[in-house]
Design a protein around this nucleic acid. Sequence first.
DNA 1: TCATCTAGTACTCGTCCGCGC
DNA 2: AGCGCGGACGAGTACTAGATG
Lengths: 331, 331
Amino acid sequence: MSGASSRPGGRPTLADVAERAGVSPGTASLALRGAAGPSAASVERVRAAASALGYRADRTASRLAARRTRLLGVTLTIRNTFHAELAEALQDAAEDAGYQVLLHPVTARRGEAGAVEVLLDSRCEALLLLGSELPSSQLAALDAHDPVVLVGRRAPGLDVVRADEAAGTALVVEHLAELGHTRLAHVSGGGSEVAHERRDGFLAAARSRGLDPLVVEGSFSEDAGAAAVAEVLAAGATGVFAANDRVAVGLLDAVRGAGPREGAALSVVGYDDSPLARLGHVRLTSVSQDPAALAAAAVRTAVERLDGGREDPVDVVLAPHLVVRGSTGRP
Amino acid sequence: MSGASSRPGGRPTLADVAERAGVSPGTASLALRGAAGPSAASVERVRAAASALGYRADRTASRLAARRTRLLGVTLTIRNTFHAELAEALQDAAEDAGYQVLLHPVTARRGEAGAVEVLLDSRCEALLLLGSELPSSQLAALDAHDPVVLVGRRAPGLDVVRADEAAGTALVVEHLAELGHTRLAHVSGGGSEVAHERRDGFLAAARSRGLDPLVVEGSFSEDAGAAAVAEVLAAGATGVFAANDRVAVGLLDAVRGAGPREGAALSVVGYDDSPLARLGHVRLTSVSQDPAALAAAAVRTAVERLDGGREDPVDVVLAPHLVVRGSTGRP
DNA sequence: TCATCTAGTACTCGTCCGCGC
DNA sequence: AGCGCGGACGAGTACTAGATG
């Protein structure tokens, strides 16, 4: 009746908590956030009042009042399992840094630019773009207003977090060579930047070991892998590096179809360490780009600019690692 | 110098736009939202001012002022490609309904309950839980405060949106029977509710056609499929219904390893129509739960309660459809 | 007189800041 | 100095009252 809370039905507000605890809203706010100021006794009373009322701060109001949102906007192709793993890791990394992630999938209807617009309208303080396909000019324009961190794609003058493709391919060659394979082949991923880096890295690593590698041109698809099998076998290769896991699965599938004899003789390595590679019957040796590390680096990169005042762009290159499974063995 | 905008550096605010257009902030707000009130001339001037200044409304402030957020909170297991497809479709469906989706992945660190907490703190008006694993009591408690829509799981007294498992399995049996298969087998998904529904649906549909179906107990994994092949072939079955696509892929893989002769004779149907099924070399016939339709129904269900005042829970059951690909044929 | 348009003010809910005790 | 209060503030929206024709 002569009620404490203004609207009996709604959620309790900070004012309700403060009143119940017998302090001012300002003090209650500090107490709940664990900030310096209130005495231990006040903190205790405020906490008790909050939990008695079931109070939880309204983040919308907090963001407005604090004059900063502590929001990191993330665009991603959500069906891409690699992006999904990154997003999951970003969530945790952001939480550790005191930020909240705002995920916006790129859909057919609302493309990447549209997603960015929504994130900006929500006043995200930085943008983490996974596998962005925006033109560099547009990225630069965005970065002029708010820090942009590109994950998995390079762009001059912008913050970039990516895996070291050359190191990854070197790991593949090293692994196959140590197993005793001397005739190596690569089924490429086509004409993209990443595909080129993997092919070039493979060739360089193989040649530095005095090997004479074969390259079969392909694309990032299972079909490319399946189509390449005949040529690979004809060339007498025993170890194959596939441009990514999908290509590798296509290869494995075709090899097994060709009969157990040849299949047993071919070692296949993929790239991405996708869930595909982990499937029980695939057990594909693959290069992992370590999504958790990439995510942590991406958050760190953004926070450095937001809170650390960094101005110059960085290019964070992380070392991938090889996950050895059953698809590789001695020749 | 004698500036219009308060902070030269920051973003323009509604006040800046209003001043430039020579109207009050209230009028400018209505004009930009396309709401009734302002004259056509005012709307034009406000729009021009906004675009000249590059103004975009601050969603944080709008949500607070409007006393409602128009936010739909979604929890999902983001690595799950089915969830990812749902999320993408939810995005578009929500936009059509004038809502924004707030995605929160369930991670190892922050479980489903934690994700829900964040969504609630952000004052989402409804919760759409994909594949929730919360106990019904907790779900009911949540629903008492804010509408909860469960996607893909049943719970008494709550809004549910799901695919019709019985209808899906009937489609499978019908398809195989029409192709001429008379000896059918099922590799089950184990003890979960969904797995039971699929097994029971399959059995009922097969028996209603006078067939004597075989069931091999399994789990939702490739290994279960691979392990079941021998038994399936020994029983003389020519058509197999796998509990989901992963099981189906395991089956196909093992069958192909067994040699082209038997492989050609076995028709395999999966469930989920996951990206796995669409892979070029898999080409798996599979039951699609139609993520877009599920998403649209989920948003509609939430909006009905938020804006339509519906009180009674609904159980929306959508008909799945069969996507026929290369893994099935005549016996 | 009445509908149309507009301005002004109160309000959302926390946080920041200056000041008194 | 430590603690706490009151009030301004953030960027919009809702509502009311009044001006206009």
